[in-house]
Design a binder for these strands. Sequence first.
DNA 1: GCCAACGTTGGC
DNA 2: GCCAACGTTGGC
Length: 156
Amino acid sequence: MTKKYWLIKSEPSAFSIEDLKKSKNQTTFWDGVRNYQARNFLRDEMKNGDQVLFYHSNTEPNAVVGVCEVVKEGYADHTQFDPENKHFFPSADPQNPTWFMVDVKFVKEFKKPVTLQDIKENSKLQNMRLIKRGNRLSVMPVEKVVFDEIVKMGSK
DNA sequence: GCCAACGTTGGC
DNA sequence: GCCAACGTTGGC
């Protein structure tokens, strides 16, 4: 089983890489994803040990800020059943959950965030879904070469 | 704060 | 099954 590589987005005002670092065991559950394509990745494809780029969206600057890894594979996102939670999903069935999440653990923070602009300017990264028009996926696969290149950029 | 792009919902 | 309306994402 070969390791896979991913990118997950978060608005730092909601949950930043600093928050991840401060979490218990530097680990958190990645809840609140309400997109079916992203759900399928969380439920079916993200495996323990997979490496994940942590991206800050809707901020200044938008950037990949570090790396985390999957430490618990897809399981039911409990917030779908909680009427008090803003991610409550009334039609969700506890016997057959609609939404899933994984746990991710902090690996490292980049010395230098790799900004969206940096990515757009790097010819090796032009195939990334992140920079495709109208992209709104909050969980997406990335190729190993792309992952390695971004880590290299962030480590300088 | 604006707005384009997109996914989902619901009426028909 | 179509598609208009709506809500959300996310760059700028």
